[in-house]
Design a binder for these strands. Structure first.
Lengths: 150, 150
DNA sequence: TTCTATGCAACATTAGAAGTTACTAATTGA
DNA sequence: TCAATTAGTAACTTCTAATGTTGCATAGAA
């Protein structure tokens, strides 16, 4: 598996929505993500169900935020996309008979659980507004670099 | 992808080797892991290259430890199997043009790097001897349970 | 009614781990 | 020397979950 991009993609899209006037269509968001409108709808569905965005059909429809970016954190988004697996590492069996295997799995599972808890706690402390602020800092930086190298 | 079992499997095998008299063949180890001798050789190759086990061909050959279990920790094994990806989460692009995407990736990568560092530090503190000790505790427990329910 | 948009089911593609086959090479021992 | 045993390895298939795609239904605006 090369990896699960959904979290990264949804964060990307939500911050763009925060910069928009009206709604953005799946088609436009798909272009931003270099993918397909169906993939966008599929993944955004979770965010809509959790009340972070709304979707409207027909002329002038599309996706829009229903909360400010400072009211959404990374844990919210992770949960909204259905809490995909964090780790690529996994155990060979769920309930092995072998006691050695049981001991190995218990140790690994304990460490991964701890790492996951700690990571999600950090996710909870990062709002999309903070990411948007970093984006703006980068945008100013680009402008400055451009002025220096015309 | 359901996940990468190599770390779990190698820990399992190494602890069994620690309980053995002579070498164990790939065939026997494969039975323990419910897999195939070729998969065993493929994964054990890294451990051999790093000097944790040796392999001998011909009659009476097979795999054996070249260090005590208290001289091998989980980080050693993780590195020996070529440091597979820890996380299933990943970024959509390596070097995106979009500044929003850059900000998102920077934040996620920073958190994942931090989580990985912390996890590997913990791995370093866990020796295979400690896992073997937990295995023995479980074995005693099973015996006790069996005595109570004959 | 027509155009635009999402909703969704069904299917194809993809990437990497795992599994398999078929063979070679080395070592032991009769 | 020869037969049996065991690892080494390349090449291929299978499996799984995310991703991509097609086609059509549904809803809303002009």
């Amino acid at each position: 598996m090369r990896g699960d991009n959904r979290l990264s993609r949804m964060l990307h899209v939500l911050i763009h929505l925060g910069q928009e006037e009206g709604p953005a269509t799946s088609e436009r968001l798909a272009q931003m993500l270099d993918t397909n409108p169906v993939v966008v709808r599929r993944t955004m569905a979770g965010l809509r169900d959790k009340g972070f965005v709304r979707s409207d059909r027909g002329h002038g429809g599309g996706w829009s935020l229903t909360r400010d970016l400072d009211q959404i954190n990374l844990l919210d988004v992770y949960r909204a996309i259905d809490e995909p697996a964090i780790f690529a590492l996994s155990m060979s069996e769920d309930t092995p008979r072998c006691l050695v295997e049981q001991a190995v799995n218990a140790a690994l599972e304990s460490e991964l659980r701890e790492a996951k808890t700690s990571l999600l706690k950090r996710f909870e402390g990062i709002t999309l507004a903070a990411l948007a602020k970093d984006f703006e800092r980068r945008a100013r930086q680009v402008r400055r670099v451009k002025l220096h190298c015309p």
